[in-house]
Write a protein that binds this DNA or RNA. Structure first.
Length: 482
DNA sequence: ATGTTC
């Protein structure tokens, strides 16, 4: 019996949301879940998968990854591709935190070398990485800087002395989407973004010191510079209030414009316009600006992380060996080519809480990863584990080169706060050997491990379904939260 | 996620 009436199990790792689940579906939905994760499916998120299938110009199926949960209009964990000529673009298909994403750094340090200093390290990182709701940083963008960040992304940060040109090779899209238009962004977004470059933010954003706990594919891990016992740093943040404001602005624009273009919406939160329309192109070029802002943000935070490590461990940059493994976007829409029934088509692929997972040989991969495929970075919750995977050819066939992005929430923020009442999450994590420093009082409760699905189950589904392959498992040692 | 309800 399916958990959600009307869905059908296809095999061990996929269920179908058939046409007719909601009226007007142009294609079926596919959700990647095994029977365990199926028990955690929310009816509302399944309905969202179905709603997306009603939108004009959808190509292939409306997809969702095993970390699916209910989002704004589109489900989080959703992937939907639209024809650039006949299809739409939707801010809800990207999410409020445009280019929320993850960067992984490797180091030459071992777990044993870092352990005695972990408390000091976390304190120093906390002191040097601005975090928390509304946090502002050490960077104040001038009007000229703002436009440069929007146009250049991580390249801007490198030009300012944050990190090296070498870092850019190992960032999705090299940390810069071309075609960002500073004039498509509101004054209000500029105001919110001005002082937030180089800040972590709050919610599920974090900076975590980890070690490689398990290596599944030693040869591939070696290409990424990863081996057992080695210390890594994972940075999870996005475009802060800047991207949030851009999403807000364009949801409003598109609600009006959708009527004008005669688009029927089963849910207002699916507000969208034709990709080729004026409003569609404006949103896309503003979204690129926010994506670039986020890549600059992760570049700045990485630079300060390096500085803290260099000072505390008194090493030269060469000896520390803190290099980018990769940096991925989890919330973004991209123009990409995909083969549909043997025909090469230009599509606008929306990934919302989903990660690009291109296989080996893909032309968009940097030379260093051409042979192994794109590294996929999957953060778990604070108390458990995170994973590095690589994309596989099957992802190109089934999911427009995409996979999951994280553990996926089990409890809403309010439910989590309620369940954490009377407990000390900080203490519970300390007992598991994880040092936490947090800016916000309630953030730890909202983000406690129990609030999330087990990321290991999520990753096993995409691994077993053959769209991405597990390479290493990472365990947290210490974390700073917003 | 978010100047955590313009």
């Amino acid at each position: 019996m399916p958990k959600i009436e009307g869905t059908e199990r296809i095999d061990l790792y996929r269920i179908r949301v058939p046409k007719g689940f909601v009226p007007g579906m142009k294609t079926e939905g596919i959700i990647f879940v095994d029977e365990t994760l199926e028990q955690e499916l929310e009816l509302e998120s399944v309905r969202q998968v179905a709603n997306v299938a009603t939108l004009p110009g959808i190509v292939g199926k409306s997809l969702a990854m095993p970390d699916i949960h209910t989002g704004y209009g589109f489900p989080i964990g959703g992937v939907a591709a639209f024809d650039v000529e006949e299809g739409v673009i939707s801010p809800g298909g990207v999410g409020y935190d445009i280019n929320c994403g993850v960067r992984l750094l490797k180091s030459n340090l071992t777990k044993e070398e870092v352990e005695p200093k972990i408390r000091e390290l976390i304190d120093l990182l906390y002191a040097h990485i601005p975090s928390g709701v509304g946090s502002t940083g050490k960077i104040k963008l001038s009007p000229k800087d703002e436009r440069e960040v929007i146009k250049k992304g991580a390249i801007w940060a490198v030009e300012q002395g944050f990190g090296d040109a070498e870092d850019l090779q190992r960032i999705e899209s090299h940390g810069c989407l071309e075609g960002a238009d500073p004039d498509a962004i509101s004054q209000k977004a500029y105001e919110r973004g001005r002082a937030q470059q180089g800040t972590l933010g709050s919610g599920n954003h974090f900076l975590e010191v980890q070690y490689v706990a398990e290596v599944y594919e030693p040869e591939i891990a070696t290409v990424m510079g990863l081996s057992k016992g080695q210390v890594t740093v994972m940075i999870h943040t996005g475009s802060r209030g800047f991207g949030h404001q851009i999403c807000d602005d364009y949801v409003r624009v598109m609600l009006q414009a959708a009527k004008k273009y005669g688009i029927e919406l089963p849910d207002k939160e699916l507000a969208c316009v034709p990709f080729r329309s004026r409003e569609g192109q404006q949103y896309f070029s503003a979204m690129k600006g926010a994506a670039n802002y986020a890549w600059a943000n992760r570049q700045c935070l990485m630079h300060w992380t390096r500085e803290v490590f260099l000072r505390l461990f008194n090493l030269s940059p060469k000896d520390l060996g803190m290099k980018v493994v990769f940096d991925v976007a989890h919330n973004i829409a991209k123009e990409e080519f995909h083969f549909i029934n043997g025909e090469r088509k230009r599509l606008i692929v929306h990934r919302k809480g989903a990660t690009r997972a291109f296989p080996n040989g893909h032309p968009e991969l940097p030379d260093c990863y051409k042979d192994i495929g794109q590294p996929v970075l999957i953060p778990g919750d604070m108390g458990r584990v995170s994973f590095v995977l690589v994309g596989l050819p099957k992802a190109m066939e089934e999911t427009f080169g995409s996979t999951c992005h994280g553990a996926g929430r089990l409890l809403s923020r309010n439910q989590a706060i309620k369940q954490a009442r009377g407990r000390s999450i900080k203490q519970e994590l300390a007992e598991r050997g994880i040092i936490v420093r947090s800016a916000g009082k309630e953030t730890l409760a909202e983000e406690m491990p129990d609030a999330y699905k087990d990321v290991s189950n999520v990753v096993d589904v995409v691994h077993n379904a053959g769209i991405a392959r597990k390479i290493v498992k990472l365990k947290p040692m210490g974390v700073i939260k917003g």
